[in-house]
Measured scan of single mutants.
Amino acid sequence: MLEGKVKWFNSEKGFGFIEVEGQDDVFVHFSAIQGEGFKTLEEGQAVSAEIVEGNRGPQAANVTKEA
């Protein structure tokens, strides 16, 4: 698991990027966000996630919002 913060997230398109210190930004799709209801993230929000290899490079999986 790694910790980072949301760089930006487009709720209409359902994707965005997470900033991780010392690494390239990581793509995040709404389907990777854990929880019930409408899955979205806010800019600057702290999150933790796993990194997996997607079709277009590294992407976030099992994204959870930090308190």
Rank of each mutant, 00 (worst) to 15 (best):
I51P: 00
K5L: 10
I18R: 00
V63N: 01
V26Y: 04
A49S: 07
G37V: 05
R56A: 08
N55S: 14
E19L: 11
V47Q: 02
V47W: 00
V47G: 02
Q45L: 07
K5C: 11
S31R: 07
S48T: 14
K65V: 14
M1C: 13
V6M: 00
F15K: 00
V6D: 05
D24L: 12
F9N: 01
V47P: 01
V28Y: 02
A46I: 14
V26N: 00
V63S: 02
K39E: 04
G37D: 05
F17T: 03
G35K: 05
D24Y: 11
T40C: 12
E12G: 10
N10L: 07
F30M: 05
E21D: 11
V47M: 03
E19W: 10
E53C: 15
Q45K: 07
N55P: 15
A61P: 03
M1R: 15
E21C: 14
K39R: 12
G35H: 07
A67D: 12
I51C: 08
E3W: 15
E19D: 06
S48E: 07
E36V: 12
V47C: 04
A32R: 00
D25S: 05
K5P: 04
D25C: 11
S31Q: 07
F38D: 07
L41T: 02
V6C: 07
E19V: 11
G22I: 03
T40D: 07
F9M: 01
G57F: 05
S31E: 06
E36C: 13
Q59T: 08
L2R: 11
F30L: 05
G22V: 02
E43D: 09
F38Y: 12
A60E: 03
V47E: 03
A46Y: 14
E43K: 15
K5W: 11
G16P: 00
R56K: 10
E12P: 04
P58V: 09
N62M: 10
H29G: 03
Q34I: 14
A67F: 12
T40N: 08
Q59W: 13
E66M: 15
N55V: 14
G44D: 04
T64Q: 13
K65Y: 10
V52T: 09
G54Q: 06
V6P: 01
V63W: 00
Q23N: 09
D24I: 12
L41F: 04
F17W: 08
E66H: 15
E50V: 14
K13I: 08
V52F: 09
S48N: 10
V63C: 05
E3V: 15
F38P: 09
P58L: 11
F38N: 06
D25F: 07
E12Q: 14
S11T: 12
V52L: 08
E66I: 15
E19T: 13
V28L: 06
R56F: 12
E12D: 11
H29P: 02
S31M: 08
Q34N: 13
N62D: 05
G44M: 03
E66P: 12
A61R: 09
K39G: 04
V20L: 10
I33Q: 03
G16S: 00
S11A: 13
G22Q: 04
F9E: 04
I18V: 04
A61W: 09
V6A: 00
H29C: 08
W8K: 00
V47L: 03
F9D: 01
V26G: 01
G44P: 01
K39T: 05
E12R: 12
E50H: 13
N55Y: 14
A61Y: 10
E12S: 14
N10H: 09
Q23Y: 15
R56I: 08
V28Q: 01
G57P: 04
A49F: 15
V63K: 00
G44I: 02
V63E: 03
E50D: 10
K39I: 06
N10V: 05
Q45P: 00
K65P: 11
G16I: 03
E42K: 14
G14T: 03
N10Q: 04
V6T: 02
T40K: 07
Q23E: 09
A61Q: 11
N10R: 03
V52D: 04
G22Y: 06
S11Q: 13
I18A: 01
Q23I: 11
E19C: 14
V63I: 06
S11W: 11
A46W: 15
A61F: 10
N62I: 10
K5T: 11
S11V: 12
S11D: 07
F30A: 05
A49N: 02
S48A: 10
P58R: 13
V52M: 09
M1L: 13
K65G: 08
G54D: 06
V26E: 00
R56Y: 12
E3N: 15
E12K: 14
T64Y: 13
K65W: 10
E21P: 13
K13M: 10
D24F: 11
Q59R: 09
R56G: 08
F27N: 01
G37C: 10
Q59D: 03
I33P: 01
H29I: 05
L41P: 02
R56L: 09
V20H: 04
E50W: 13
V20G: 03
G35Y: 06
D25P: 08
Q34H: 10
E43R: 15
A46R: 15
I18M: 04
V6L: 02
G44L: 04
V20F: 15
S11H: 12
V20C: 08
L2D: 04
A32H: 06
A32C: 08
L2F: 15
N10K: 07
F38E: 06
K13P: 02
K5M: 09
E36P: 12
A49V: 15
F38V: 06
M1N: 10
F17A: 01
K65D: 05
R56W: 15
K13L: 11
Q34F: 09
I33F: 04
F17E: 01
V28C: 06
G4K: 00
S48M: 14
E12L: 13
K39D: 03
E43F: 13
K7D: 06
D24C: 13
G57D: 02
E21Y: 12
F17V: 08
G54I: 03
G22E: 05
K65S: 09
G4W: 07
A60Y: 02
E36S: 13
E53V: 14
L2G: 06
A61V: 13
Q23L: 13
E53F: 15
F30D: 02
I51W: 07
G37W: 06
F17L: 06
K39L: 10
F38T: 06
A60L: 04
V6R: 00
E3A: 14
W8L: 00
K5Q: 08
H29W: 04
D24W: 10
G44V: 02
A49L: 15
K39Y: 04
A60H: 02
D25W: 09
D25Q: 06
F9G: 01
Q45M: 11
V6G: 03
L41Q: 02
N62W: 11
F9P: 03
R56N: 10
D25R: 06
T40A: 07
F17G: 00
Q23F: 15
Q59Y: 15
G37K: 05
D25G: 04
A49Q: 03
L2T: 10
T64A: 09
F30V: 07
Q23G: 10
E19I: 11
A60F: 02
E53Y: 15
G54V: 05
A46K: 15
E12C: 15
I51R: 08
K39V: 08
